[in-house]
C-alpha cells in the first residue's frame, strides 16, 4: 500500500499537478497554499484569533459554501426546467413526481433560504466586531453589494416554480416599483415627467414595466428573471466574491485587535 502511494506520488502525472511534498513541514505547508490558485485566496499564515468559530461564526465561509451548493444544484435543475409559462410549472412538478428521493430541488430551495440567513449573520458579525473600520471600509462595501445580490438572486429564483406562491410574491414585490419617485407611474413626481402634454411615464413604460417586460408578471418576466437568476447575477456575484476574498487577504487577513 505504502509502495503504491509512493509510486503515485513519484509519478510524473502527480508531480505535474502538485509541486510540493505532503504539507507536513513549514516549507511544504507554505507551498500548499501558495501554489494553489484557490487556497491562495488565503494567506499562508493566519492569526489564531481569526479562525476561531466563536469569533467569525464561519458565516462568510458558509455563505460562500452555500453559493457553491446552489450553483451545483442549480445547474442540475437547469437540465430539467424550461422557462416558459406553459412548461415551467409542469417541469418543477415533474421533478417531485418522477424522481424518487430527489433532493436537488430541496437542496436548492433550503440552501437559498439559508444563504440569505447566513449572509445577514455574516454582516451582523462583521458589524459587531467593528471589522468595517479602516482598512476594511472598501471590503464592507463590496459586502453590501454582495448582500443585495444575494437577495436579488433569491428574489429572481422565487418566481421560477411558476406557482401561485411564486407569481404573487413577485407581484407584491414588484408592485413597489410602480411607486418609484419620478420613474413609476404611481410614484410622486411622475406626472412632472411630461413634455408638451404627453406623459412620459405611464403603466406601459415605467420601471416596473422594465423589470417585468410587461404590465403584469407574465411570460416576459419569467424569461427575464430566469436569465438574471441563472446567468447574470451569479456571474456578478462570483466576480465580486473573488474581489471580496482577495481584499480580506490584502487588508491584513481576518480582523483582529492590533
Amino acid at each position: 500500500m505504502t509502495k503504491l502511494f509512493t509510486y503515485i506520488r513519484e509519478s510524473q502525472i502527480w508531480k505535474s499537478i502538485f509541486r510540493h511534498g505532503y504539507p507536513d513541514t513549514p516549507r511544504n505547508r507554505t507551498l500548499a497554499v501558495l501554489s494553489n490558485v484557490f487556497l491562495h485566496l488565503h494567506p499562508v499564515k493566519v492569526r489564531r484569533s481569526g479562525i476561531r468559530l466563536s469569533y467569525t461564526w464561519c458565516m462568510g465561509g458558509l455563505t460562500f459554501f452555500l453559493f457553491l451548493i446552489l450553483t451545483l444544484t442549480g445547474l442540475l435543475l437547469m437540465f430539467y426546467y424550461r422557462p416558459t409559462a406553459d412548461k415551467a410549472y409542469e417541469d418543477i412538478f415533474a421533478l417531485r413526481e418522477h424522481v424518487p428521493i430527489g433532493v436537488m430541488r430541496e437542496m436548492h430551495r433550503w440552501g437559498a433560504h439559508l444563504m440569505v440567513i447566513s449572509v445577514w449573520l455574516h454582516m451582523y458579525r462583521v458589524f459587531l466586531t467593528g471589522s468595517y473600520k479602516p482598512p476594511r471600509e472598501f471590503n464592507w462595501n463590496v459586502g453590501v453589494i454582495l448582500l443585495v445580490l444575494t437577495l436579488l438572486l433569491s428574489f429572481t429564483g422565487y418566481l421560477l416554480p411558476w406557482d401561485q406562491l411564486a407569481v404573487w410574491a413577485i407581484t407584491v414585490g414588484t408592485n413597489m416599483a410602480r411607486a418609484t419617485p419620478f420613474l413609476g407611474h404611481e410614484g410622486p413626481g411622475a406626472a412632472l415627467v411630461s413634455f408638451g402634454g404627453i406623459d412620459f411615464i405611464h403603466a406601459g413604460d415605467d420601471v416596473r414595466f422594465g423589470l417585468l417586460a410587461g404590465r403584469f408578471v407574465g411570460e416576459g418576466a419569467l424569461l427575464r428573471f430566469y436569465v438574471l437568476h441563472c446567468v447574470g447575477f451569479p456571474l456578478i456575484a462570483a466576480t465580486l466574491m473573488a474581489v471580496h476574498f482577495w481584499r480580506v487577504r490584502k487588508d491584513g487577513g481576518i480582523s483582529g485587535p492590533l
Binding site: 487556497l39 499562508v44 479562525i51 465561509g61
Partner: peptide, 21 residues
Amino acid sequence: TLEGELAKQKVFTWPDLVYTE
C-alpha cells in the same frame, strides 16, 4: 481581550484553517 491573546499567535493556513473549513 479574548481576541488579543490569540492574535499574537500565527498558525499555518494548512492545516489549521483548511481543516476547520
